[in-house]
Amino acid sequence: MTKTKSILFWFLAFLITISSAIYQRVTGPTYPVKGRVNFDGKLITYKFERSHSSNKNYLIEINIDNNVEGILYWKRYKFDQNFKSILMTNNNGLKAELPKQPPAGKLEYFIELKKDDKKIFLPEDKTVVIRFKGDVPDFILIPHILAMFLSMLFSTRAAFEYFSKEPKLKFYFLLTIISLFIGGFILGPIMQYYAFGKWWTGFPFGFDLTDNKTLIAMIGWLFAFYKIKKSSNPKVWVLAAAILMLIVYLIPHSLLGSELDYSKIDVK
């Protein structure tokens, strides 16, 4: 393989990897809800978080003039029947706090703005669900993200070996499997324990999609390695494993993630 061709393959692999990471992030259930609305002749911008530390209340702030009244409505997700209301303070902007919840606890909320006979809801046509989680140390979080990113990068780079006359299949398999194992099966469970108090919530213990898709990616690559030794055309199986991993990575992060069942704990 020429040096130019190798550089091109690495560039394309990086481009696909970073694009899939961005797509996974912005389509996931923890990505903030953002929007702009016109109210009383003024443009209001808002940003509502959908993931927050379980060690502190979540402060909601909206930059708006002092003549507007704001009411925060919230309830425990899939548990409370009715919304509770909190009158937001208005001092250089509307402010109110959602009470902190145990790890994996979720709250459903929205805001009503009122002025004279006018009112509007934020968001306009839905509620926001926020999940609380324990704080994960940076020395666990950063290596986990890096290892998972590298596993996707190496996997995608391996796919381009399909177009090489002398493919380095075992080399890229090792890079992929090592980074995937470290990120998904060592650092991943540690991070999960810090955040939600459990090491593994995928198969066979639960339905956590993040854990399960990591497991599927690993099985796909282990099967590809078996085919590298047995198949007359191993490049096809490496390409298939890489495509499977890409599909897995395109599934939004934290979808069907850990969720506290309030009915099983002592709640007020």
Rank of each mutant, 00 (worst) to 15 (best):
M1C: 11
M1G: 11
T2K: 11
K3W: 14
K3M: 14
S6D: 14
L8T: 10
F14P: 06
A21L: 09
I22K: 09
Y23F: 15
Q24V: 12
R25G: 12
V26S: 04
G28C: 11
Y31I: 13
G35I: 08
G35A: 07
R36L: 14
F39I: 00
G41R: 00
G41W: 03
K56M: 09
I60Y: 03
D65C: 06
G70E: 03
G70M: 07
L72R: 03
W74D: 01
R76Y: 05
Y77H: 00
N82F: 12
K84S: 13
I86M: 06
M88K: 04
L98F: 08
K100C: 03
P102F: 12
P102C: 11
G105Y: 02
K106Y: 01
L107A: 07
F110G: 01
I111M: 04
L113R: 02
K114P: 02
D117M: 14
D117Y: 15
D117W: 14
K118M: 13
K118R: 13
I120R: 01
K126F: 14
V129P: 03
G134P: 12
V136I: 05
D138W: 01
F139V: 05
L141P: 03
I145S: 00
L146W: 12
L150I: 08
M152H: 13
R157N: 00
A158C: 04
A159R: 06
E161A: 05
Y162M: 08
E166M: 11
K168C: 05
K170C: 04
Y172H: 03
F173I: 08
L174E: 14
L175D: 09
L175Y: 07
L175Q: 08
I177W: 04
I178W: 02
G183K: 00
G188R: 01
G188L: 03
I190G: 05
I190W: 08
Y193D: 08
F196V: 03
G197Q: 04
K198P: 10
W200N: 00
T201Y: 15
T201K: 14
T201R: 14
F203M: 05
D208T: 07
L209F: 08
L209V: 03
T210F: 07
N212F: 03
L215N: 01
L215F: 08
L222T: 11
L222M: 10
F223A: 12
A224F: 09
K227Q: 14
K230S: 06
A240D: 15
A242L: 02
L244R: 12
M245R: 10
L246S: 11
I247C: 06
V248E: 15
L250A: 04
P252S: 06
H253Q: 10
G257I: 00
S258V: 08
S258Y: 13
L260W: 10
Y262V: 02
